[in-house]
Design a protein around this nucleic acid. Sequence first.
DNA 1: ATATAAATGAAAAGCATTTTCAATAAAAGA
DNA 2: TCTTTTATTGAAAATGCTTTTCATTTATAT
Lengths: 149, 149
Amino acid sequence: MRKEYEVLDDFLHSKGLRHTHQRKKIVDIFLSTEKHVSLDDLFKLVHKEDRTIGYTTVYRTMRLLTDCGLSNEIDFGDGVSRFEHKFGHEHHDHLVCMKCGRFIEVVKQKIEDLQGRLAKEHGFLPTAHRLHIFGICKRCQSRGASSKG
Amino acid sequence: MRKEYEVLDDFLHSKGLRHTHQRKKIVDIFLSTEKHVSLDDLFKLVHKEDRTIGYTTVYRTMRLLTDCGLSNEIDFGDGVSRFEHKFGHEHHDHLVCMKCGRFIEVVKQKIEDLQGRLAKEHGFLPTAHRLHIFGICKRCQSRGASSKG
DNA sequence: ATATAAATGAAAAGCATTTTCAATAAAAGA
DNA sequence: TCTTTTATTGAAAATGCTTTTCATTTATAT
Ligand SMILES: [Mn+2]
Ligand SMILES: [Mn+2]
Ligand SMILES: [Zn+2]
Ligand SMILES: [Zn+2]
């Protein structure tokens, strides 16, 4: 069994929360995608498998997953929150393609270090940061045309 | 006369748009603050000076100012758009204090450079970026208590 | 002054997110 | 297994900010 389920089980147990088949399905589907999904994306995926599960339950479950550290909520500034896997995933920044909408995960340790130094220079105690670079991805540059995905 | 007004005049003229006393007042008030103001902030400031100017006009005017390059719209991820001066202001990133809500403007050229390199390494053509560092500002660290501003 | 098209303000609509609430179901104990 | 307790669910409504609509007003050119 994936470690993710242990984390969730522990969290549920420690808080006196319950296992439900709705939660199980939603978690399964979330863990089975490697994309940066919005609530709407996720609800659609869930709905295909089980028409009885409501949007609100998806909403609440993602909140739960975020609380227990399995999910990370990101705001790319387009008015919609997205969720990505957090457990077992290191911190990373994103290149956001304005043409196809893909999010490319990147890490540059030197930038991370310099951010820490920058904060320090201002006597600022950093707890989190968000770096998004917007532009056109490699694929969208070669193809002139657009292609959502 | 400030250069900002020339920029606006040129923009209005080139688009066949009109000067109105509402726009004048809103622009004056926006230019007279150095803060990162939300629409609501700005409307309140405007409303104090002229009770007849509506929220919608403030909204549309800020959109206009953003279009003509006098204003920059920022999303700090708290569900509210904010506006800052753009004309004559160089690009900068922000340290966001989670306690008092202040936005500290910072620049680190080395980070900017490394971002360009990072994009290049991925064949990505960057057009804009956003770096926000969240945490506790110097002032809020020394005072234990909170103080909005 | 008149004509024309832009601008305005109030109200309504949009839209993602969050809350409410009555009904349902999970888990613990008898 | 049956009962009790309390978390969970789904539909609908509420929220909060942004954006549009539309009838009226106003800026500008003639
Ligand atoms: Mn990611
Ligand atoms: Mn700023
Ligand atoms: Zn792309
Ligand atoms: Zn502070």
